[in-house]
């Protein structure tokens, strides 16, 4: 059995980011997301375009940083940091960015990724899930619940103490 498949290229991305092809694929994703946002919120693609352009620019900047930083962090971490800094009040342009991205429903931005994810599932992934059997399904649900509720309990306790 070929076990390589499921890891995809996410952990190994680091230095190997192909900026040109990412830039083109991102354009496609942004176009799909604009249409999805239109259906979800009734905000026309034209009206939402400046916000999408901001997201596009932040993503590219994040990818460039991830490519050239001497230490490894996932590119999504850099993209988040760029987006946070660009929207902190007082940072030049922050008011414009906030106003512009406000036209984009946050959940509608994730819908294309899930559609790709459903279509990308390989024969192997179905096979592994089937072969692992019901025990793994139970463990997986416990893992997700445990990971979530563990954080909830600690966060809640600390918030009670610190107010």
């Amino acid at each position: 059995m070929n076990n390589e498949i499921a890891i995809s290229d996410a952990p190994a991305e680091g230095r190997a980011i192909d900026l040109a092809s990412h830039a083109v694929q991102l354009l496609v994703v942004c176009a799909v997301a604009l249409v999805g946002n239109w259906v979800a919120t009734n905000v026309s693609p034209l009206e939402a375009l400046p916000g999408m352009a901001c997201l596009y620019a932040m993503t590219i900047v994040g990818l460039v940083i991830a490519k050239y930083m001497p230490f490894y962090l996932p590119s999504v971490a850099w993209i988040s940091l760029v987006a946070i800094i660009a929207t902190i009040p007082g940072v030049p342009g922050a008011a414009f960015v906030n106003e512009a991205v406000g036209k984009l429903n946050f959940l509608a931005m994730a819908t294309p990724a899930l559609a790709y994810a459903g279509l990308a599932l390989t024969k192997n992934e179905f096979a592994i899930a089937r072969k692992s059997g019901w025990k793994i399904v139970i463990v997986a649900i416990c893992v997700m619940f445990g990971t979530y509720i563990g954080s909830v309990v600690i966060a809640d306790l600390v918030l009670r103490i610190t107010g």
Binding site: S8, D9, A10, E13, H22, Q25, L26, V29, C30, A33, M52, C54, L55, Y56, M58, T59, G62, L63, S75, V76, I79, S80, L81, V82, A83, I84, I85, A86, T87, I88, P89, V91, A94, V97, N98, V101, L104, F106, M109, A110, P112, A113, Y116, A117, A120, T122
Partner: peptide, 20 residues
């Protein structure tokens, strides 16, 4: 499969903009 990692990026950026 490649597109999943690309497609999640604008979402992550949109999410980051809620923090500032």
């Amino acid at each position: 499969g490649t597109m999943i990692t690309i497609a999640i990026m604008p979402f992550i950026a949109r999410f980051g903009t809620t923090v500032g």
